[in-house]
């Protein structure tokens, strides 16, 4: 759970104040659909995650290997799992 909070905090940073509406970073929230991530956001989150967890965490590289379904359905929990696997 500690890792989830840490990753969620980084994602929350990228999402920002959302024009006044605080975003809920739930495990099943999708980056693209729920958090409205675009490619710039993915790059920003990737850079922040690599700074915190090391260069083996390469979110942009990970995302570039996914197919359309996996990309549009990518959730916060899946990002946490990816970070856990790479940072281990």
């Amino acid at each position: 759970m500690a890792l989830f909070e840490e990753v969620a905090g980084i994602l929350r940073e990228v999402v920002g104040p959302c024009g006044g509406c605080p975003p809920g970073i739930a495990p099943n929230a999708t980056l693209e659909g729920d958090l409205r991530f675009d490619s710039v956001d993915v790059a920003a989150a990737g850079a922040a995650l690599a700074r915190r967890f090391g260069d083996r965490v390469d979110l942009v590289g990970h995302v570039s290997g996914l197919d359309l379904d996996a990309l549009t359905g990518l959730t916060v929990a899946q990002v946490v799992d990816y970070v856990a696997a790479r940072a281990a």
Partner: peptide, 25 residues
């Protein structure tokens, strides 16, 4: 998003987030 990046790269404007940009942004 591609066009926004090209505009920024050309120095002819700025890109902001559509879904999240607030009044201050």
């Amino acid at each position: 998003p591609i066009n926004a990046n090209q505009v920024e790269h050309a120095g002819a404007g700025l890109r902001i987030g559509f879904a999240r940009a607030g009044a201050a942004d």
